[in-house]
Amino acid sequence: MYDFTLKGYLNSDVATVYQAFSEPDILSKWFAPGNLMVSQMMLSFTEGGQYRTVLVGPDGFQQTIMGTYQEIVPNERLSFTWRWDDTNDITKVDVTFNTLPNSTTSIHLCQSGFAQEQDMLSQQYAWLACLEKLSLATRNFSPVQHQAYAA
Rank of each mutant, 00 (worst) to 15 (best):
A20T: 04
G60V: 04
D86M: 10
S44K: 10
S44P: 01
I65M: 10
S39Y: 06
L43C: 14
E47K: 04
L43F: 10
I26D: 11
V54D: 00
F21A: 01
Q19G: 02
F80V: 01
G67S: 04
F21M: 08
G49R: 04
F80H: 10
Y18T: 01
S39I: 12
M42V: 13
R52V: 11
E23W: 06
Q50S: 12
F21N: 02
D86I: 15
S22W: 07
I26W: 11
V38L: 11
N88E: 15
F31R: 03
S22Q: 07
P74A: 03
F61M: 02
P33Q: 10
L27R: 08
Y51V: 02
T53Y: 06
Q40I: 11
G48N: 07
Y51D: 01
Q62N: 06
D59Q: 13
F31G: 14
M41T: 14
F80I: 00
V73W: 08
S44H: 13
E47N: 11
G60M: 06
D59L: 07
A20I: 08
P33L: 03
L43H: 14
S79V: 12
W82K: 00
Q63H: 12
V17A: 06
M42F: 15
T64R: 06
E47V: 03
T46I: 14
T68Y: 01
T68E: 08
T81Y: 03
L43W: 12
T64W: 00
F31E: 15
Q19M: 07
L43R: 13
L43N: 08
I26L: 14
T53S: 03
D25H: 04
V54H: 10
Q62K: 15
N88L: 06
T46Y: 11
I65H: 09
Q50K: 09
T81M: 01
R52Q: 09
L78K: 03
R52I: 09
M66P: 04
Q50H: 09
N35G: 13
D85M: 09
L78R: 00
R77F: 15
L78H: 02
N88T: 15
G67I: 02
L55A: 10
Y69W: 05
T64Q: 00
F45N: 05
L55R: 12
P74T: 10
N75A: 05
L43Y: 13
Y69F: 11
E76N: 04
W30C: 07
S39K: 14
R83T: 14
Y51R: 00
W84F: 13
W82C: 04
S22R: 05
L78W: 09
Y18M: 05
N88S: 11
P58T: 02
Q19D: 07
T64I: 12
E76W: 00
A32Q: 05
W30I: 04
T81H: 01
E23H: 12
S44D: 15
F61C: 01
F61H: 09
Q19K: 15
P33S: 07
G48L: 03
R83A: 09
I26A: 12
G49M: 15
R83G: 02
A20P: 09
Q63W: 10
N75L: 12
G57W: 03
F45H: 03
S28W: 09
G60N: 04
A32W: 09
G34H: 03
V54Y: 01
Y18K: 08
A32F: 08
Q40H: 11
T46L: 14
W30S: 08
G48E: 05
L36G: 12
W84H: 08
V54F: 04
L27I: 13
I26M: 11
F21L: 02
E71T: 01
Q50C: 10
T53W: 06
T16W: 15
